[in-house]
Each structure stands twice: as structure tokens, then as C-alpha cells.
């Protein structure tokens, strides 16, 4: 059992959720309540990571993060290390790969709020921020929660993007799913089996938690 890989996986999962949730709330709400030119294009871009093979996504991210790209050079100049094949680069790649998993459930959550309810909140004298925090977030909550848990679970299972962008550096970019592949190649079936079971149990636990939480949340909305 590669405990370091498990730690990297968990940190990556938590980090991706923390990084992505605020952006996802902003973008999901924007797509749910506003009409603007180019909205269809934005929605297509949001969905793109879902249909693109992880290797294609990983390839472009690697090119973008690499030492010859402006982003890669800027990161190296500020932080002093390369963005590609680092945990930070992996985190950024994971966040981009997870955009559809966070934006879409949140968008559906905000879309489920009738326009009249938002208007009523304004007529109650609530400022836009008060409306967002006291009315919209509680009502879109099941969508937000689903987004967070899906993103976390999906990050644990991500393989292609991780391998392309992060490589396989122990303690830095070697996640549990990459470690399983690594052990399999080394004919260490026992370790691979233990880690596969760990991921399986984690995934099951996450999904059970999502379901039970959303059951507890949904009747409250009634």
C-alpha cells in the first residue's frame, strides 16, 4: 500500500474542490440566470473536458504548462520550479479537467430556482449578496453538494491527465490511480489489489454520502 500516493490523491481531491467550487458557483450561476452573447460557446467549452480523451486534454495542458509557454515561464520565474510535473501543475490540470463536473450540477441547481423567487427576494429588500447567500445558495445546495462530491470522486479516479501532466513522481504527482498502474507494471499484484480496493471503498463511501446527504437536503426544499 502506497500511503504517500493516497495522501497525494486526497490532497489533490480536496485541493481541486477548494479551487474549483467558488469559480464553479460563479460560472454555474451566471449560466443559469443570465443570457449573454456567446453563452452557447461557453457552455460548449465547459462540457469539452467531458468528451475529450484525457490524453488530448493532458497534451494541451502540458504544452501550456511547459517551460516554453508564457504561463510555464511566468510560474517558474515566480515560484522557482516548473509547473509541469509538479503538484501545483497537477492541481491546475485537475481543476480544468473537472470543470464540467462542478459547473453543470451547480448550473442545474441555480436553474431550479424559479425567477419569481429570486425577484421576491429582491422585493424583500435583500441586497444581491444577501439574496445569493440566504436564498439562492440554500436552494441550489443539492447541486452544489453534488458538484463538490463528484469533483472529489472524479479527481481520485483521474488517470490520463495525471499521467500526462504530472508524470509519476512519488510524493509529488504519483496519485493512487497512477500507483496502481505502476505496481501492475511491476507485477506487484498484491499492492495493486490493496490500492484498487481502497479506491473502490472510497468511491463507494463518497457516493453513499452524496446520496444520503441529498436525500436529507431535498425534502427541506419542498
Amino acid at each position: 500500500m502506497d500511503w504517500t500516493a493516497l495522501r497525494v490523491s486526497l490532497w489533490l481531491g480536496v485541493g481541486t474542490v477548494v479551487l474549483l467550487l467558488p469559480c464553479g458557483m460563479w460560472l454555474g450561476r451566471l449560466l443559469a440566470v443570465r443570457e449573454f452573447p456567446g453563452k452557447l460557446l461557453v457552455e460548449a467549452l465547459v462540457t469539452l473536458p467531458l468528451v475529450l480523451p484525457p490524453t488530448v486534454l493532458g497534451f494541451y495542458l502540458l504544452v501550456t504548462f511547459g517551460g516554453r509557454s508564457p504561463l510555464g515561464q511566468a510560474f517558474e520565474a515566480v515560484v522557482g520550479q516548473s509547473l509541469a510535473f509538479s503538484f501545483q501543475g497537477l492541481l491546475l490540470a485537475s481543476a480544468i479537467a473537472n470543470i464540467p463536473f462542478v459547473v453543470q450540477p451547480i448550473q442545474r441547481g441555480f436553474e431550479s430556482i424559479p425567477a419569481d423567487v429570486r425577484d421576491a427576494a429582491a422585493c424583500c429588500g435583500l441586497t444581491p449578496w444577501q439574496r445569493f447567500l440566504r436564498i439562492e445558495v440554500p436552494l441550489a445546495w443539492p447541486g452544489i453538494l453534488t458538484a463538490a462530491i463528484l469533483t472529489f470522486a472524479h479527481t481520485l479516479g483521474e488517470f490520463g491527465v495525471v499521467l500526462m501532466v504530472g508524470g509519476n513522481l512519488p510524493g509529488e504527482t504519483r496519485t493512487l490511480s497512477v500507483a496502481i498502474y505502476d505496481r501492475m507494471n511491476a507485477f506487484d499484484d498484491r499492492s495493486a489489489g490493496v490500492m484498487a480496493a481502497t479506491l473502490l471503498v472510497t468511491a463507494m463511501a463518497t457516493l453513499t454520502l452524496t446520496t444520503s446527504l441529498s436525500r436529507r437536503v431535498v425534502p427541506r426544499r419542498g
Partner: peptide
Amino acid sequence: QEYALFPH
């Protein structure tokens, strides 16, 4: 018209 109460 549909009252638009806050369901939560």
C-alpha cells in the same frame, strides 16, 4: 402570482 415563497 404563484406567491414565490422561499421553499426552504
